[in-house]
Design a protein around this nucleic acid. Structure first.
Lengths: 245, 245
DNA sequence: AGAAATCAAAATGGATCCAAAATTGTAATT
DNA sequence: AATTACAATTTTGGATCCATTTTGATTTCT
């Protein structure tokens, strides 16, 4: 599926993973020689990949100073959720008039898949990944039904923020994950009835609550259940010295 | 201000201009050798620029097949306006609680500038550029006040569609441009009163009407007052042959 | 004659090389 | 001792070169 053939594409995808996983710390300088050697390619495809990543917002570039991992303030993370809430709500509104029997079934199938994973009364460790994938598919399906490619594109870009990545499920409390899954069911029901406004309202709250919960977790325990948190202590020597000779 | 020093950045900006201005036709293949020679640089910075443009959505890339100018369907253009309407409405909602006396003044100064340009009862030819710039500044100021950088970024990306570019003012009819400017005044007034909902509602309609008008112009006279329209007749030989040897 | 195979030309992707700029370390001067 | 000037190293940016893939055109075979 996602088999990119050129080195530049592979390197880009690899870097994206590494950055989102937090293995490269925000603000960290990306030395081209070292990185190229580590990744086993020459500098040329690496630079191509970096140029692309810079435009996708994962790294920042400064002329003659190279690339560094982009860092996001809590305020920016909050902003990402707010825009995402609005875009996904809009997706619901646009999707509603496009609903068919088949599409309704696809949505409810995903809900049922979540039901199965949560059947025991809690989410097993080994069910984390399947649940996460189901969650991603549910949101993406609605965006597809909406038929506006810009929405899916922008939502994907908003996931290019380390902490808001769709690969992170930090809901350990049963009540929260249960409520979140219940939102999915209600959204599916509203959409299958053609009620875009209602589906959109649920979706907006669905995303905004995730924001509140994530930010509260960030504030309360900066490094606890979350190893993904950018280690500010380690955010090392960045001397923004700017002298005129 | 926008002085990018490296060749790659200059080439990228140059290509962006050329594509948005329609001098490179949608779907057209971008031959690296020829382009590099035309632009007076080697292929390396050109490829860096293309990689960036690909991620910004102006060109599309296919492995081992190179880059071509992206083409947008009328439906995609419509979709861009719809998302932009929502994002700019959201910007109004977020901007309202941030308003100050100074910011109100800045907004009304821009409105007054438009008043001056339209004072004669119509828009002079030489006032086109100033009016266009005022328009851009008005919208950008609201996005700045909103304080959510994602909105400004996404709106800018939505302007990366040839026909929706903010450099195009195709409103030749006095009534329409007058009404559009009146929207600006009402938005400024609503914002200065802290009424984000109302400002957002006006903004949404402001953008959606521009969409309707643009699309109607596109349908009625594919090449009339608009020279920017992609010349489909010239969209030349693209053989998407895909054989397995 | 039409389709398939083959070979030549061209274009893309990647590696290496070189120049220019920035950073770092050292020395010299105040 | 601190700061400035200067030199050496490192790193980035750009050009060139080479390999691989694609494209197209010609030839060959059914």
């Amino acid at each position: 599926m996602t088999d990119n053939h050129t080195s530049a594409e592979m390197v880009g995808e690899r870097l994206r993973e590494v950055i989102l996983r937090g293995e490269l710390h925000p603000g960290e300088k990306l030395h081209q020689n070292r990185l190229a050697e580590q990744l086993g390619v020459s500098r040329t495809p690496l630079r191509t990949a970096l140029a692309a990543l810079a435009n996708s917002g994962l790294v920042v570039y400064e002329s003659n100073c190279g690339y560094r991992v982009r860092e996001f303030s809590p305020e920016q993370i909050r902003g990402a959720f707010i825009v995402r809430a609005e875009l996904e709500a809009l997706a619901c509104m646009l999707a509603a008039p496009n609903m068919t029997e088949a599409l309704s079934k696809q949505l409810f199938d995903l809900v049922a898949e979540g039901d199965r994973l949560l059947a025991d009364g809690h989410l097993l460790e080994e069910s984390h990944a399947p649940y996460r994938e189901m969650n991603v598919r549910f949101h993406k399906l609605i965006q597809t039904i909406a038929g506006n490619p810009w929405i899916a594109d922008f939502v994907a870009r908003l996931h290019n923020v380390p902490l808001t990545s769709d690969r992170i499920i930090l809901w350990e409390h049963w009540k929260i994950i249960h409520r979140s899954h219940d939102d999915h069911r209600r959204i599916a029901e509203a959409l299958s009835h053609g009620n875009g406004m209602r589906a959109g309202a649920i979706m907006r709250e669905h995303v905004l609550f995730a924001m509140d919960y994530l930010l509260s977790q960030l504030n309360s325990q900066p490094e606890g259940t979350l190893r993904i948190v950018p280690d500010r202590a380690k955010a090392q020597n960045r001397k923004t010295s700017k002298r005129k000779p």
